[in-house]
C-alpha cells in the first residue's frame, strides 16, 4: 500500500533534484574574485535556494513519514474490529496496551509475535492505551475514536499532540477515567478547555506543559470545570514570582531560598 505512495514521493524528489539544477543560484554568485578563498558559509550562501529546496524536501519527507505512521489500519479494523486495530496501532508506535482483566502492560516490540498474540484477544475490550513519547497526532487519534471502553489514556510527551487533537477526545466522555497530557509541548489552555466533555474523568495529569502561561489560574479553572477530577502536576503557586536576584541580595540568598522551599512544599488545601 505504501509502495505507490513512495513512488509518488520519489517522483516529487526527482523533480526537485531536476529543479535544483535548473534554478541553481550558482550563476548569480559574483564571479570576480572578491573572495577567492570560499569558506563553507560562503558556499552555503551561494546555494541558498538549493539548500532551501533540500530542507523543504526533508521536511516533506518527515511529514509524509508522520502521516504514514498515523494512518488508520482499515484492513485489521474490518477483519478483527476496532479494538484490535487500535491495539496494533499502539504497538506499532511502540506504545503499551492493556485489555480488560489484565494487570500488566503488554509491550511487545516484535511485529510478528504481537500480531499473533493480540489476535487471541478478539472480542475482549481494550481498557488502557499508553502512547507516551510517540509520534501520534490528530489523524492517529482517529484510530481510537470508536473504542467504547477506554478507561486509561496516556499521551504524555507526545510532540504532535496539539489543541486540535484534544478536541477529538470528546468521544470518550462516558468512559475515560485517567488521562495524562504531561510534557506535551503544543498543548495550551485553549485545548484543555474542551476536556469538559469528559464527565467521568478521575485523574488528569497536566504537569510540565511549557505552552501554558498562567498555570495557577489554569489549575483553578480546570478544577471548576471538572469538579470530580483530581488535577495533577500544576500547583496553585506555580509561576508566582520568587524575588531572587543574586546581585542585590547576595548575603540573603540562602535564607530566601529556604523560604521558597517551604512555600513550594506547603500545599494549599483544596
Amino acid at each position: 500500500m505504501a509502495a505507490p505512495m513512495a513512488l509518488r514521493h520519489g517522483r516529487v524528489f526527482i523533480s526537485l533534484l531536476r529543479a535544483c539544477s535548473r534554478n541553481s543560484s550558482h550563476s548569480t554568485a559574483p564571479s570576480t574574485g572578491l573572495l577567492k578563498r570560499r569558506g563553507l558559509l560562503q558556499y552555503l550562501c551561494d546555494r541558498f535556494y538549493d539548500i532551501e529546496a533540500f530542507v523543504d524536501g526533508g521536511m516533506k519527507l518527515k511529514s509524509w513519514n508522520l502521516e504514514r505512521k498515523n494512518k488508520h489500519y482499515i484492513q485489521i479494523c474490518e477483519r478483527y474490529g476496532d479494538n484490535l486495530a487500535a491495539a496494533v496501532f499502539a504497538l506499532m508506535l511502540k506504545g503499551g496496551i492493556r485489555f480488560q482483566g489484565q494487570t500488566e502492560w503488554y509491550r511487545e516490540r516484535n511485529e510478528k509475535r504481537y500480531c499473533l498474540e493480540v489476535s487471541q484477544y478478539q472480542g475482549v475490550p481494550l481498557e488502557a492505551l499508553d502512547f507516551s513519547g510517540s509520534v501520534i497526532n490528530y489523524d492517529g487519534l482517529g484510530s481510537l475514536v470508536n473504542l467504547k471502553t477506554l478507561k486509561y489514556l496516556d499521551l504524555s510527551r507526545c510532540p504532535n499532540i496539539d489543541d486540535w487533537s484534544l478536541s477529538r477526545l470528546h468521544v470518550f466522555r462516558d468512559t475515560l477515567q485517567e488521562l495524562s497530557l504531561a510534557g506535551c509541548p503544543q498543548i495550551t489552555e485553549r485545548g484543555l478547555a474542551c476536556l469538559h466533555h469528559l464527565e467521568s474523568l478521575k485523574r488528569l495529569d497536566v504537569s510540565d506543559l511549557p505552552s501554558i502561561a498562567n498555570k495557577g489560574l489554569v489549575r483553578i479553572l480546570l478544577e471548576e470545570m471538572l469538579p470530580q477530577c483530581e488535577i495533577v502536576g500544576i500547583h496553585y503557586d506555580d509561576e508566582l514570582p520568587l524575588c531572587l536576584e543574586d546581585d542585590t541580595h547576595q548575603g540573603e540568598t540562602e535564607e530566601l531560598q529556604g523560604v521558597a522551599c517551604i512555600w513550594k512544599n506547603s500545599k494549599i488545601p483544596a
Binding site: D163, W164, L166, S167, R190, G191, A193, C194
Partner: peptide, 8 residues
Amino acid sequence: DIQFNPSG
C-alpha cells in the same frame, strides 16, 4: 500559531 480555541 492561529490560537484556535476548540470550544464549539
